[in-house]
Amino acid sequence: MRKRPEQRRAEIANAAAELALVDGLDAVTLRSVAQRLAVTPALIAHYVASMDELRADTVTRLMEAELTAMRAAADAAPTVLDGLRALLGALFRTPRAASAAVWLDAWTQGLRVPVVAEAVRTQMDDWQEFVTGLLARGCAAGEFDTADPDAVAWQLIALADGLNAHSLVSYRDPTAREALLAEVLERSLGLPAGTLSAGAPQAGTDGGEPGSADQGVADQGPAEPDPTDPKPAKSSTAAPKSADPDPADHSRSSP
């Protein structure tokens, strides 16, 4: 049965997001998406203007979902201070290796792909707005003391990004990474030492590296074949011919 265009686009978006989380943003190719959906590359090309745009859309989709979850964790807390504690916990005590890896992939691709860079900047602005707002509410409630919530928010985000990159290669203890950011924020927000680290897991009791490569994140697989390569792909999992009667099955085969 022929699927509606919006159904096809949703399937493609979901497949691209799954590939990015498991194998990295570079793994989102015309051929890999087609294989995941068991359709022909031509059908994917019919719905996707370019793979650069699909990767940028994938970055936006995944990062927006992550930020929504972070907002929910902070908003559910009874006080702004508890909300900040919840944010730190979500950043460091939940499995985030796949998400952190997508951020790193996006920054790398953004160096050469303007549409990906624009998507990343938009998401970074959204994070900045979220954290600045959280800290400003804390100042208004008398829980924090800083004259520049925006600067402290940028400090938090930059340090969290770096420490999450460290986590991808299991550099240093996860509790120590969280404690480092907590200590910096305590000084920046005029909080007593230990305020933000209260309730954090003790070293050696958190069950291992949260979200690190040793907790089941798939290894980067072999590079996907170039969909423009005229030679047939040497794979035992080649995509079957699509049953979708969409005339695009016989159109162009590259984005």
Rank of each mutant, 00 (worst) to 15 (best):
G83I: 03
P95A: 09
V80H: 15
A136T: 01
A45P: 00
D26S: 08
V80R: 15
A117I: 00
S99F: 11
Q123D: 02
A72K: 14
P149D: 09
W127P: 03
A90N: 12
R36Y: 05
R61C: 05
D23W: 05
T58C: 14
V116S: 03
L159W: 04
R36G: 09
D23I: 00
W103G: 03
V33F: 01
E118I: 12
M51W: 03
A42S: 12
V116D: 13
E143Q: 10
L111K: 10
W127T: 01
G24S: 12
R112K: 13
A158I: 08
W127G: 13
L67E: 02
V102Y: 00
G89W: 06
L81A: 01
Q155V: 04
A117P: 02
D57R: 06
R71I: 11
L84A: 08
G83L: 04
A45L: 02
A20N: 07
T132C: 12
V115H: 04
G133W: 07
A20W: 03
D126H: 15
G89L: 09
A77D: 07
W154Q: 06
A42K: 01
A98F: 10
Q155N: 10
E66C: 08
L37C: 09
L84T: 11
D75A: 15
P78E: 02
V28D: 15
D57H: 07
L25Y: 00
Q35L: 13
Q35F: 03
A153D: 02
F92A: 03
L104E: 13
A86F: 01
L91E: 15
A158H: 14
W154V: 07
G89K: 09
A119G: 06
G89D: 14
I44L: 09
A90E: 11
A73E: 07
A141H: 06
L159N: 12
V113L: 14
A42Y: 07
A119Q: 00
R121G: 06
E64D: 10
Q155S: 08
D23C: 02
M70T: 03
L159K: 12
R121H: 05
W103H: 13
T68C: 06
A76D: 11
Y47T: 13
R36V: 02
Y47I: 15
